[in-house]
């Protein structure tokens, strides 16, 4: 059994506003094993990016971690000082942002940006840095001549690859990716996903991949966590979640996108819209949109129940809990 390299325990993140705190991440638990591919799926505003930023310690005010811990390789990241964190960034874990267009510095060549990251971590010779830059760029399938290119000279797919190359400069143990493919076309998207998976198999780093598109990660991630309203709604092995989704929200998500195969059938989508986290519903957060809601759902918050290998936050599964009196 591989040991977890990342354990998120009971993590809460609040956005502090004048009209009260908004809890964007609400008591989230996550475990990532070494070399694992974990996908976090959810709609906009569900807290998935905030969770990611909390794990990477990139939150800035008004967001603050109000509870819980993030244990990465034995250190609680929440307690580390900025200088200790700086030492770990790029080397032990790296982050690939959503839009490489904005994440790369438009005024600097790709090589100069790679150099910055490497120079921050010890003393590599200029030549070693150049060689390593060329090496990682080739790794992601971009010709090394583009080291001298500026971001605007690269296509969207190439920029995103350059970002991934940069994340791999030190071959970290964990690469955190925030919708790295959402600005790309389907064809480029797929080729990038295949590339990420190949690199992961080859280099053995763990991936946390955040996306709103469940089908995108269906073939690549081992486990899937579905977030809704700041909470984990369901966490399961990807295959079992696609085969037999437990949470009504997961069921709705799977039914929400059309297929190119099989007969055309009417999609229902999910009526309504995600909850306002400043005023979350009293009971289950999904209850106002849930087709299977019971009267009880409006008043009582469901816990996270385990069903087989999966965890699901829904009162429908409460009865299945062992040791609970009928």
């Amino acid at each position: 059994m591989p040991s977890p390299i990342l354990e998120v325990r009971d993590l809460c993140v609040d956005y502090v506003t004048n009209s009260g705190d908004v809890r964007a991440v609400d008591h989230v638990d996550l475990t990532v094993e070494a070399g694992e591919f974990l996908a976090i799926v959810g709609e906009s505003g569900c807290g998935k990016s905030t969770l990611l930023f909390a794990i990477a310690q990139l939150l800035s005010p008004p967001a603050e971690i109000s509870g819980g811990s993030v244990i990465f390789k034995g250190n609680d990241m929440v307690q580390l000082s900025p200088s200790e964190l700086r030492h770990m960034r790029w080397r032990d874990y790296s982050v690939v942002m959503q839009s490489a267009m904005n994440a790369l510095n438009p005024m600097k060549s790709i090589e100069a940006q790679f150099k910055d990251a490497m120079a921050a971590h010890g003393n590599m010779s200029a030549e070693a840095m150049r060689n390593r830059s060329a090496e990682v760029l080739k790794l992601v399938g971009v010709d090394a001549v583009h080291l001298r290119s500026y971001p605007h000279q690269l296509s969207g797919g190439m920029r995103q690859r350059a970002m991934i190359a940069m994340a791999l400069l030190f071959t970290p143990d964990l690469v955190i990716m925030d919708e790295p493919t959402s600005a790309l076309d389907v064809v480029a998207q797929r080729s990038l996903m295949i590339q990420i998976k190949e690199l992961q198999d080859r280099l053995g780093f763990a991936v946390i991949f955040v996306t709103h598109d469940m089908s995108l990660v269906s073939h690549y991630s081992a486990r899937l966590a579905v977030m809704y309203g700041g909470q984990i709604a369901e966490a399961a092995r990807t295959a079992s979640l696609f085969e037999k989704p437990l949470h009504p929200y997961s069921v709705g998500l799977l039914d929400a996108f059309p297929s190119i195969h099989g007969p055309r059938r009417v999609l229902t989508g999910i009526p309504g819209s995600p909850p306002d986290l400043a005023r979350p519903p009293a009971g289950c957060r999904f209850q106002p949109r849930c087709p299977q809601a019971m009267p009880e759902c409006a008043v009582r918050q469901p816990g996270l129940y385990s069903v087989g290998d999966s965890m699901v936050r829904c009162l429908l599964y409460e009865a299945a809990q062992p040791g609970r009196p009928e």
């Binding site: 389907v186 080729s191 590339q195 696609f242 195969h261």
Partner: peptide
Amino acid sequence: AVPDPREPISVSASP
């Protein structure tokens, strides 16, 4: 290139 969880992944196109 359309991801479809209901279908096995095809490996025809080069990355």
